[in-house]
């Protein structure tokens, strides 16, 4: 193993650029699926909403405007090669990168200091949730994922009985979309985590949203579950902007994990139609 030096200034710049990219440029799969949804049956008002969303993607890109005024609470996933040696601590550099991107790009800062007792905004910091995972090698891969508050409010998790049938998982997910999906800017992307522990399943559901939604799950059992969930969710009739129609979800992505024999954790992360994220690699 040869240690490779990385100035954190490179990381700051990379994260700042990713913050701008994630907010200004729609994911390719999101853009393609919104356009494809115009072929589905929706009310005239819902079709108008789809047209607004498609136009929105073009205007945001042309004018470097955020896709949504809610530039979200940012999650950063960093996969860090263990051969890399940074000249300053990595996590604060990532935080600085987010702050720089948000300030330079006129991106709305929505994070407050304390959920319980101090609901004032930060002056200069733009704090993000940062997950750092060590890998072998000397590559740095970073994903910046902003997510709005309205759609996060629609997310839920539960601990089902370990003997629960697939039908109960499907019912749990569909009931959540029926109860709160219309508050979360449909058409939706639904990330589902099954397994792990109470703390990890929520993260699993979020990571499920990182997948390209145009490509089905590799595992046939999960692809079948995703298809079933798509069909059931789109039967609800919520439609784009909640104005009625068969396009309630644009995609469902399921990730599973091992778990304790007594448990069956399930988490549902509902994303709005502007599912955002940008990824880049720094090879040293």
């Amino acid at each position: 193993m040869v240690a490779k030096d990385v100035p954190v200034s490179n990381v700051i710049e990379l994260v700042a650029n990713l913050s701008l990219d994630a907010n200004h440029n729609a994911r390719a799969d999101v853009s393609a699926l919104l356009r494809k949804a115009r072929e589905s049956k929706n009310s005239p008002a819902a079709m108008a909403a789809l047209d607004h969303l498609i136009a929105n993607i073009e205007i945001a890109k042309e004018r470097s405007l955020p896709l949504c005024q809610d530039c979200g609470y940012v999650t950063v996933f960093a996969e860090v090669g263990q051969d890399l040696v940074f000249d300053d601590p990595l996590e604060p550099a990532i935080q600085l990168g987010v702050a720089r991107g948000y300030d330079d790009g006129d991106l709305r800062q929505s994070v407050i200091r304390d959920a319980f007792s101090d609901r004032t905004k930060f002056e200069t910091e733009r704090p993000a949730n940062v997950y750092i995972n060590l890998k072998s090698g000397s590559e740095l891969k970073i994903t910046v994922m902003p997510k709005g508050g309205g759609s996060d409010n629609a997310c839920r998790m539960t601990m089902l009985k370990p003997t629960a049938h697939e039908d109960e998982i499907v019912k749990y997910v569909v009931d959540i979309v029926a109860a709160s999906g219309h508050y979360a800017c449909p058409p939706l992307f639904v990330g589902i985590g099954i397994g792990g522990s109470f703390d990890s399943v929520g993260l699993l559901a979020k990571v499920a949203l990182l997948r390209d939604f145009q490509i089905p799950a590799k595992r046939p059992d999960l692809a079948a579950l995703e298809n079933r969930l798509m069909t059931e969710i789109n039967k609800l009739g919520i439609g784009p902007a909640g104005l009625g129609g068969e396009t309630t979800a644009l995609g469902v992505s399921v990730l599973t994990d091992r778990t304790h024999m007594a448990c069956l954790p399930v988490a549902v992360n509902i994303s709005c139609n502007q599912l955002r994220g940008a990824t880049a690699r720094l090879s040293i």
């Binding site: 008002a45 108008a48 909403a49 607004h52 969303l53 136009a55 929105n56 205007i59 945001a60 004018r63 405007l65 955020p66 896709l67 949504c68 005024q69 809610d70 309205g150 800017c185 784009p240 902007a241 909640g242 104005l243 709005c272 139609n273 502007q274």
Partner: peptide, 13 residues
Amino acid sequence: FVATGGAAAYLSD
């Protein structure tokens, strides 16, 4: 009135 959620750049126009 309902405005389209998720179309904020478009609406700013």
